[in-house]
Each structure stands twice: as structure tokens, then as C-alpha cells.
Design a protein around this nucleic acid. Sequence first.
DNA 1: CGGTATCCCTGCGGATACTG
DNA 2: CAGTATCCGCAGGGATACCG
Lengths: 130, 130
Amino acid sequence: MTKHRQTLEDKVAGQLNAIEGTRQGLEVVSGKWTILVVFALKQEQRRLSDLQRMIEGISQKMLIQTLRKLEYYGLVERTVYPVVPPKVEYALTPLGFTLLEPLYAICHWTDDHWVQMQTAAQQFQEKEKS
Amino acid sequence: MTKHRQTLEDKVAGQLNAIEGTRQGLEVVSGKWTILVVFALKQEQRRLSDLQRMIEGISQKMLIQTLRKLEYYGLVERTVYPVVPPKVEYALTPLGFTLLEPLYAICHWTDDHWVQMQTAAQQFQEKEKS
DNA sequence: CGGTATCCCTGCGGATACTG
DNA sequence: CAGTATCCGCAGGGATACCG
């Protein structure tokens, strides 16, 4: 594992196009709603309508699209209960749970530095006037 | 700080719309090219043309747009040398450098789990046929 | 070389209606 | 309730041409 990481760092340190694999993986994680959906599934499995209520502003189309992508890559599991009315539950897979940690790292960073960034933004604007 | 983090975790655990601040910060970090640009500036300051050569496939427009955004939020510093022909160098600020760590967390994750994700994707496709 | 401005088109993503 | 299909507006972002 350590060796593995070293390899990645070498790649990043070298040619950027060498991290294509990482870029592809990144595309899975990115996306306007992905992080929010993963977080919404953090504690327990949810039904589609639950998720739509939890994630303010997401359309059903985008929600399903995001869930499909996550399911496709094995991060989310979709369980259908053969009852009427239909009941479908979504849950994070073990793989999906491992994603929470690096996601938190980003969130913590933005949370810790958002004020600094806003301050910098104001200074930038004022400097622009002159 | 620890208290601060606890607060964020509470928010995430609760209403998702409560992490609006985090979402805003996230939007700065996200973006197709942002991570690559930050990585390209990891070691030393770079000129615009250097960056364009390093980051395969980026258009000048997107590169500048991304740099502007990063500069705006104080993550990148832009230095103009009053010479002819013009020379401009971009570098990460101390704040920008702090971003590397969580970014690496994501990259390491994708790097470590990309194979699993591809395997899952194949299984998903095969299951789909039946 | 660094940067802006303009044109233009693809596709993301929202709204709506419909099926099982 | 879960999901698909269709329409469509608009902005992200590429290509090009042009300034300092």
C-alpha cells in the first residue's frame, strides 16, 4: 500500500497526464450531487422519496442518475422489495463507506478555510477597484 | 478546531441543507480542472504556457478561468514581471498548499479503489444482460 | 507571451407527463 | 411509490481572432 501511494505521488509529481486512472476515478466522485447523496446514505438505507426530501433542490432525474452511477461502480446497493406499492431501498456498500473518509477530509477543509477564502475574495475585489 | 469539526459532523449527520457553507466551499474546489491545476503548481511556480503544456486537453480559456477562480479565493498568487515579452508566474499560496492534503486523500482513494470500481462496473453490466 | 472577446454548439439538468 | 420518456432552455466550455 505504501509503495502504491508512493507510485501515485511520483505520478503526480511527474507528468500530469500520467494520472489518467485517478482522473477517471475522480469523475465518478465528482458531479454536482454525488457527495450529497453519499452523505445522505451515511447512516442508514433510504428510500428514493426520502433522499429527494433530504437533498434540497435535487430533481428526481438527477437523483436517480446519481444513484445509478454510484450503483454501477459498486458504491451503492439497490434493494427492491416485491410489494405493492413498490419499495426500493438504497444503501452504501462497504466500498461506498470507505469513500466517506476522504470526502470528510474535503468537507473539513472547506469548512475550516471557507472564511479565509471569503476574506481573500473581498480583498481581491477591493484591489480590483484601484 | 476539534469542536469545529464536531459541529460539521453534526450538520452532515442532520439536515443536508445545513451544510450550505460547505457546499459553497466545495464548489470552489470542484470543477473539471481545478484539482489538476493545483497539482501542477504543487512543486514550483509555473508560467501560463507551462501549465497549458502540463495539463493535457485544457483550453486556454478554461485554464485562465480556473486560475482566476483560485486566485480570487486566495489559493493561487499571480505575479507579473514587467518585462518584454510579458512574463507571469502562478504559485500556490500557503492557503493553497493546505488544500493539497485533502486532495491527496481523494486521489489516494480513487487510486486504491479504481480497480474495485471497474470490477463492480463489469459485474453490473453482466447482471444487466439477464 | 499573456490575456480578452466573440461566436457557437453540445449536453447538463429542470419540468412535465406517463407507466407498472 | 419508483421509474422512464420527452421536451427544451441555458450555460459550460471549445475554437478562433484579436490586443498590449
